[in-house]
């Protein structure tokens, strides 16, 4: 990871955080709101491995917590997302020819994040019906996989454009 790639990482996540409430939330699609931020984190983690995954997750979580209209407890989202990014980097990181893998991983990542959020919501005392939960859970995974179709090529493109894969990166993948 050189400095340009970190810059690309930060700006893509920032853009995702900006467009999440202003664009995707306003589409009012059936079921859950597509979660662009988690998809962005998953794609970076798949492309660059656990370390970048954890950093991307932390950044995304921090931005989600401080950006309006967020009003929940600061720091929770960054813990959860950093762990998800790390785990995805371990399980699914590394160069691969398969195109379906990042889609599946994004779907799994998004539903995991949604599960955590629901659990924290229930702990705070929200009354969530099983029906609503299962609809949102399913649509969340499907939307995430669909978003990854566009996001993953973008991330790998940025990764290739901004300098060759360094030796330390290759080592880290192994």
């Amino acid at each position: 990871m050189n400095i340009y790639k970190y810059f690309a990482l930060i700006s893509t996540i920032f853009i995702a955080v900006i467009f999440q409430p202003t664009f995707l939330a306003r589409l009012s699609l059936p079921g859950a709101t597509p979660d662009l931020v988690i998809v962005m984190v998953c794609c970076w983690a798949v492309t660059k491995g656990p370390e970048v995954g954890a950093i991307a997750g932390f950044l995304a979580g921090f931005l989600i917590d401080v950006a309006p209209p967020g009003a929940h407890l600061m720091g929770i989202a960054s813990i959860i997302l950093a762990l998800i990014g790390y785990a995805i980097g371990i399980v699914g990181g590394g160069p691969s020819r398969s195109f379906s893998r990042p889609l599946v991983i994004s779907g799994v990542g998004a539903t995991t994040f949604f599960l955590f959020r629901t659990i924290s919501g229930v702990l705070v005392g929200n009354d969530i019906s099983l029906y609503n939960f299962s609809i949102n859970f399913l649509t969340q995974g499907i939307y995430a996989a669909a978003l990854a179709i566009f996001v993953y090529p973008g991330v790998t493109f940025l990764d290739k454009k901004l300098g060759p894969v360094s030796r330390s990166d290759e080592l880290r993948m192994k």
Partner: peptide, 15 residues
């Protein structure tokens, strides 16, 4: 209204 809380964690806020 410029941003709508995504409703993922069932909190409903807008800015």
């Amino acid at each position: 209204v410029i941003a709508i809380g995504a409703g993922q964690d069932y909190s409903w806020t807008v800015s």
